[in-house]
Design a protein around this nucleic acid. Sequence first.
DNA 1: ATGAAAGCGCTAACAC
DNA 2: GTGTTAGCGCTTTCAT
Lengths: 334, 334
Amino acid sequence: MKNRITMKDIAREAGVSVATVSHVINGTKNISKETSERVLKSIEKYNYVPDSSAKNLRKKKTKTAGLIVSSLPDNFVNDMIFGVEERAREMGYNLLLVNTKEDEKYEEESINLLHSNLVDGIILSPTSGDISYLNKYTNYKFPVVMVNRFDKKIKNIPIVSGDNYQLGFDATTHLLRHGHKKIGFIYSVLNVSTTEERLRGYKDALKQFDIPFCEGCLERGYGTVKGGADAVANLLSREKDITALFTQTDLMTVGAIGKIKEMQLRIPDDLAIIGFGDFPSAVIIEPPVTNIILPARTIGRTAFDVLINKIHNPDYMTHIQLPSSLIVRNSCGC
Amino acid sequence: MKNRITMKDIAREAGVSVATVSHVINGTKNISKETSERVLKSIEKYNYVPDSSAKNLRKKKTKTAGLIVSSLPDNFVNDMIFGVEERAREMGYNLLLVNTKEDEKYEEESINLLHSNLVDGIILSPTSGDISYLNKYTNYKFPVVMVNRFDKKIKNIPIVSGDNYQLGFDATTHLLRHGHKKIGFIYSVLNVSTTEERLRGYKDALKQFDIPFCEGCLERGYGTVKGGADAVANLLSREKDITALFTQTDLMTVGAIGKIKEMQLRIPDDLAIIGFGDFPSAVIIEPPVTNIILPARTIGRTAFDVLINKIHNPDYMTHIQLPSSLIVRNSCGC
DNA sequence: ATGAAAGCGCTAACAC
DNA sequence: GTGTTAGCGCTTTCAT
């Protein structure tokens, strides 16, 4: 393995000092055109790229951000990830991706590692566990922003999320307007702001229609197709008079629909359904499925912008809530 | 912003030298139990984490890998990404994710940047463009492995991909066996091994059934739902006697099915379809769609393992081809 | 078993 | 406009 070219080599080759090389690379000082060109030529010739580690050590910045997601990757999460990635590169940052798969311990380990000057800041979509350990980092101003899921108990941490309360309220209201009185709520993770807020919206919508909240209408399942199917089966065997469903992830929505069809129930006549999160095939399913969505890509992009602000100003705070929208198709009864 | 704790601080606190601290952290030398415990205690107390940049500079290794993908992210690519991510973390590596979106120039820039001691190696799913610039890196043994897509022109680069030739052959043969004589082939990127290999398989299958290859049966579209729909419309308006379709990405498959339904054609009676890449809702679509798949997650994981080998041994070479499998449902006519 | 010190490749303050 | 040099925080060789 040939030894790496360093700035010193370039300097020697161009007959200048390393300081000069550094300055022409970074444009940090006026260097005469001739010298500059000579340096550039050597750089070209040797295909030289400044060592990032050395630079990072010296500048105490890495120009990379960490993105830690915890969910089973569904369409929403994937879009959000690519939103972050897209914005990061637009801003000249690299992106370190970590998927904790709801593993709290691994989440803490990851943050600890990234925090070691590996990244300038972290965008975190946390697990449902106890994440108060985060205060350890945010307290002394290591830039962390929460995306999608948030936890108000953590101090000094900006948040970018969807307006999940309104989302829950709107989806439920829509079903209520179609005359449904008993609406199943299928989720995958509890103690997480997304689910909790939607649930709050769901309950408030019920209240507004003077319909009592029924504890048995809540059903938890694994956040996969299979999980959605199982949840529907359980829910329906327990609460026979449910006439509508509100599912919380696109994978579960698909599983739910599969199970409903398998049970020979008709959508939306026997059972109406609204899912959270759009997915490409929603239109071609019979009937086309009504989804309530959040702008995943924008949430990701915005989270990155907020992180940049936080990096530049350690006291920066905000809670941005992006609005949801209902994509009305037919599974809701419309 | 409080100043970062360094090894020096820990050393002072514990009343030892930095060398000792380093050794207890890394277990690189025998340190007496008492000293060791004292050091550990200080580390704990200050929540100290060694600076990664300094460590990387010194060791000339970063324990992070770069993953550069170029495709519009569909189900296959996403699964592959998480396969790489999963394996990376199992092996104690971090993952830098870059999506070039088929932008050749950005791809080259990214590689150049990552190569600057930012990552120990790169897993690349290249654009369709001319990537011979890669030789510049692989020639002097910077570890790069190609995943999914490959280009034999690059020297000294291991490859992990699906067996796309067999995939194309099998999918086409399956359709042929159902009696189809004119099969549309809908793809999104040309000059890329995945498409080219599948096409080669497609042609060979045709040959085996003594059916002449029809140039007009090939249709290119943008790799999205809309792209798939448009491609079908174009294809069908030109070649009216096509009775089966083989689409190359899951998004295009969905778009194609949507368009077919919109045209009031029946699947599989008027038009059979097999798509590449499975997607969660394939089962609940009417009719359930037959897909031919590649083990995306395994491909990702394997690519990472190959990268590790390449990092340890600069001369390591291989071309691993993972087999495809046909998920027979009903859209093919079965 | 522990410590002193060199040096990884770069940036930036300072000198000329 | 250009060069000298200290030092970022760590690992590691060599002493003791």
